[in-house]
Design a protein around this nucleic acid. Structure first.
Length: 444
DNA sequence: CATCCTTTGAAGCGT
DNA sequence: ACGCTTCAAAGGATG
């Protein structure tokens, strides 16, 4: 017997409010199974969500290094084309006051030098319109990390993205102390040198710049060029790079565009993994020998101070991801996050997960209230766009024609899967290229 | 062992 | 705004 079909049929016969209650009851039930102490009361259908800026304390580092939610309430007022359609998350989380991925990104804004990357949460001085446009048409997040209030004394706090999915932690309101990150340094370069000076001071990894288009091209073509040059007895990297530079310049715009797109994608991912990071953090850390000698000779202590100053950004983990019609945005593709990245985000081992797909009525996309229980068998709920289950539609028709409400128990995945880079998003229900917006929650 | 060399592009920095 | 500097990758060469 197909359990999913049975559930779907039962759901179709239910009233909406009853259904929502049932959904949340199911969620709560799993929470109760996986949490200790017991889960809070059932969340009412009129789920209260707090999208206003939430002061987050004790998050300067580690797992809790969630973004400072210093947001501007007006950010949610920014119009996104997606929002012209029926609200995503309608009913469950929307009602005009819920997490709306489309609102997590602002539309307008220039990506200018010296400002912030699209996905950054500057510490204090960001005006409302700091949002940046992703050159590759990615949506832009606003400077908000919403806190979803689940019920009395319990909320979801966004902690980052894992495998392209939003991760939330379930937080008790009296339990805001985040675990200390055990994430290993991200610098996996074989040399291990050139770490940020302040890393040792603040135990923070040196985050390298994302590669630009040419770097990606070099990476891809290096082997070929090396093979060619090796025949001639030329093996120095400098010589190879010279050839690669010529090859790059001989490419057509269309050929180069592929690498520019990829670079934008890499940049976006990089910012997802390292919110708050800018190239400024590395600036001056890798000086030429001459400069370094000069600097250290002049005032080494000042250098150290400068290094500290340059690397003040905490490891922030909150990243939002949009979805829907922005199917061409690089970030909408299915991605694998290394276990160590998950550690960076969550500050702990990749959890075992159980996934539930919830498709909401009158919605084209639904919200996720997935839960990671780090102590027991974690539960992950995944709410996916209706398009995952329905035949392909255009974005507009999909928005205009809400799909049926379904609640599907998908499957359980285990930490081995995560370690093997199989994530909740790898559910067979989801076409890899489908737009999606999901969230996960860590239950602490 | 740290840095140079060599390329292009992105971004920081100083003027 | 403009120009210069730094850093991304690579690995042999150099100090």
């Amino acid at each position: 017997m197909d359990v999913s079909a049975e559930i779907e049929r039962a759901i179709e016969e239910m009233e909406r409010g009853e259904l929502l209650s049932t959904v949340w009851a199911a969620i709560d039930e799993i929470l109760a199974d996986t949490s200790n102490p017991p889960s809070p009361p059932l969340v009412p259908a009129e789920l209260e969500l707090n999208t206003h800026p939430q002061p987050v304390e004790s998050q300067a580092e580690g797992y809790g290094a969630c973004i400072p939610m210093m947001a501007d309430p007006h950010m949610f007022e920014q119009q996104n084309p997606l929002m012209a359609a029926p609200t995503m998350y309608d009913g469950l989380l929307c009602q005009g006051d819920i997490i709306q991925p489309g609102h997590l990104y602002s539309q307008a804004g220039a990506y200018s030098q010296g400002q912030y990357l699209p996905y950054l949460w500057p510490e204090a001085d960001v005006p409302t319109a700091t949002a940046v446009s992703h050159p590759a048409a990615a949506p832009q997040p606003c400077n908000i990390a919403p806190v979803v209030k689940l019920s009395e004394g319990q909320s979801l706090r966004w902690v980052g993205v894992w495998n392209g999915e939003m991760l939330y932690e379930v937080i008790a309101e009296d339990h805001f102390a985040p675990p200390v990150s055990t994430a290993p340094p991200l610098n996996t370069s074989k040399s291990g040198k050139r770490k940020c000076e302040s890393q040792q001071d603040e135990n923070r990894p040196y985050v390298k710049k994302p590669p630009n288009a040419f770097m990606l091209f070099m990476k891809e073509q290096r082997v070929n060029v090396e093979a060619e040059l090796n025949i001639k007895g030329i093996r120095t990297a400098a010589a190879v790079n010279t050839v690669l530079g010529r090859k790059w310049n001989s490419l057509t715009k269309e050929e180069q565009a592929k690498y520019y797109d990829k670079a934008e994608e890499e940049k976006w991912l990089h910012a997802q993994r390292h919110p708050g990071w800018t190239t400024r953090d590395n600036y001056g850390k890798k000086r030429k020998r001459q400069r370094k000698v000069k600097a250290s000779a002049s005032n080494p202590e000042e250098d150290t101070q400068q290094a500290k100053k340059l690397c003040v950004t905490p490891v922030q983990t909150a990243v939002m991801e949009s979805s829907s019609s922005l199917t061409e945005a690089p970030h909408t593709k299915t991605r694998m996050m290394e276990p160590c990245d998950l550690q960076t985000v969550l500050g702990m081992e990749a959890p075992q997960t159980q996934t539930v797909l919830v498709q909401l009525p009158h919605t084209q996309t639904a919200v996720t209230v997935p839960v990671f229980d780090m102590c027991h068998l974690p539960q992950v709920y995944e709410v996916s766009p209706a398009s995952w289950l329905d035949p392909p539609e255009t974005a507009s028709t999909s928005l205009a024609s809400p799909g049926p409400l379904t609640l599907t128990q998908i499957e359980s995945t285990h930490s081995e899967d995560v370690g093997g880079q199989v994530s909740p998003s790898d559910s067979q229900l989801k076409p890899p290229s489908s737009p999606h917006c999901t969230a996960s929650a860590a239950l602490l």
